[in-house]
């Protein structure tokens, strides 16, 4: 219908608040269900290797002997498979992204508690990040 049929939308845009956000000055909006990154509670981990097997990109490595749980943030596609398969619910997904990085790193290693031989709980809060 002729020239300037955009007028209505233009005036609506002017009268409204802008649709864009000044990221990173203002934080990006994200839904509660958004898959941002995988978190682990190392204390609950029993090093069963189920997450390692379910990971389609092989981003997770679990060392049963040294008792470490390792994730490569750059390989991880945050598909949530490991979280669904974890028997102790020690894995979870957070709706915040991994921070951007300027060099190729992103492997995070967590120490998990040793295999419980008897019922004796150790409070081991050690967490090393690389």
């Amino acid at each position: 219908m002729g020239l300037f049929s955009m007028t209505k939308m233009v005036f609506r845009s002017v009268s409204r608040k802008p649709a864009t956000l000044m990221y990173p000055v203002r934080p990006a909006k994200s839904a509660a269900a958004f898959r941002g990154r995988i978190l682990i509670e190392p204390l609950k981990c029993i090093a069963c290797r189920k997450c390692e097997k379910s990971c389609p990109t092989q981003a997770i490595t679990v060392d049963v002997k040294v008792r470490t749980w390792q994730i490569d943030r750059l390989r991880c596609i945050i598909c949530n498979c490991c979280v669904e398969d974890c028997p102790t619910n020690c894995l979870s997904t957070e709706n915040i992204y991994t921070n951007p990085m300027t060099v190729r790193e992103g492997i995070e290693i967590y120490t998990v508690p040793p295999k419980p031989e008897r019922k004796k709980e150790t409070v081991d809060n050690s967490k090393t990040e690389e």
């Binding site: 845009s13 802008p18 649709a19 956000l21 000044m22």
Partner: peptide, 9 residues
């Protein structure tokens, strides 16, 4: 221009 396009600018 940005405001007309719904942006902050």
């Amino acid at each position: 221009t940005a405001r007309m396009q719904g942006r902050v600018g």
